[in-house]
Computed example of a mutant assay.
Amino acid sequence: MSERFSPRGTLLAMYSQTITPSDLAWQEQALCAQTGADFFFPEPGSSVRDAKRICGMCAMRPACLDYALSNDERFGVWGGLSEKERLGLRRALE
């Protein structure tokens, strides 16, 4: 599992050190809320590069990733990770 915006091996560390709000207020502050879902839920086989670029600039990224992992989000880019990357992270956390 690798991610373009993080040095190698920091995904698991980032997740394990995440402190997130207990409510969903972070969603209103997230850059994706200002961008539109098309970037974050692309057609199968399409690039997620633009979504990851936006996530890389978002301060709410740790809360987003925590939400996606806690709620078993299976589709789209959440917290800067694709479905496949989140699956790998889930497996590493088990």
Rank of each mutant, 00 (worst) to 15 (best):
residue 53 R to A: 14
residue 40 F to H: 02
residue 79 G to S: 00
residue 74 R to A: 10
residue 54 I to P: 03
residue 54 I to L: 02
residue 13 A to E: 14
residue 31 L to P: 06
residue 66 D to F: 08
residue 24 L to W: 08
residue 56 G to S: 14
residue 4 R to P: 04
residue 33 A to L: 03
residue 94 E to T: 12
residue 15 Y to D: 01
residue 2 S to W: 14
residue 60 M to S: 13
residue 24 L to S: 09
residue 68 A to S: 08
residue 14 M to G: 00
residue 85 E to I: 10
residue 92 A to D: 05
residue 16 S to M: 14
residue 17 Q to T: 13
residue 49 R to K: 15
residue 22 S to V: 07
residue 3 E to K: 04
residue 80 G to V: 00
residue 94 E to V: 14
residue 84 K to S: 12
residue 71 N to E: 12
residue 27 Q to W: 05
residue 70 S to L: 11
residue 42 P to M: 04
residue 48 V to D: 08
residue 27 Q to L: 06
residue 81 L to N: 07
residue 6 S to Y: 14
residue 49 R to I: 11
residue 61 R to F: 04
residue 88 G to R: 08
residue 84 K to H: 13
residue 64 C to I: 05
residue 12 L to Y: 05
residue 29 Q to L: 06
residue 57 M to R: 12
residue 65 L to H: 09
residue 37 A to Q: 12
residue 63 A to V: 00
residue 56 G to F: 07
residue 12 L to N: 12
residue 71 N to C: 12
residue 59 A to E: 01
residue 84 K to E: 09
residue 19 I to H: 13
residue 57 M to I: 04
residue 82 S to W: 06
residue 42 P to I: 08
residue 90 R to T: 12
residue 15 Y to Q: 02
residue 40 F to M: 04
residue 40 F to S: 11
residue 54 I to D: 02
residue 48 V to A: 12
residue 66 D to P: 02
residue 42 P to L: 04
residue 56 G to K: 10
residue 20 T to P: 03
residue 32 C to Q: 00
residue 1 M to G: 10
residue 83 E to T: 08
residue 73 E to L: 09
residue 29 Q to Y: 00
residue 86 R to H: 04
residue 91 R to V: 07
residue 61 R to T: 08
residue 43 E to V: 13
residue 63 A to F: 05
residue 17 Q to E: 15
residue 32 C to G: 04
residue 79 G to D: 00
residue 22 S to Y: 10
residue 93 L to M: 09
residue 36 G to C: 11
residue 17 Q to A: 03
residue 77 V to C: 02
residue 5 F to W: 12
residue 13 A to I: 11
residue 72 D to E: 15
residue 4 R to G: 03
residue 34 Q to W: 00
residue 64 C to T: 00
residue 52 K to T: 01
residue 51 A to M: 00
residue 56 G to W: 06
residue 12 L to R: 15
residue 94 E to R: 08
residue 74 R to H: 13
residue 41 F to V: 12
residue 56 G to H: 14
residue 94 E to P: 04
residue 4 R to D: 15
residue 64 C to R: 06
residue 38 D to L: 14
residue 9 G to V: 03
residue 85 E to D: 01
residue 44 P to Y: 14
residue 41 F to N: 07
residue 17 Q to V: 04
residue 31 L to G: 00
residue 15 Y to K: 08
residue 13 A to F: 13
residue 6 S to M: 15
residue 90 R to D: 04
residue 73 E to D: 07
residue 83 E to G: 08
residue 79 G to Q: 01
residue 55 C to E: 03
residue 37 A to I: 10
residue 33 A to H: 03
residue 62 P to V: 00
residue 46 S to L: 02
residue 25 A to W: 07
residue 92 A to F: 01
residue 70 S to F: 05
residue 14 M to L: 13
residue 15 Y to C: 07
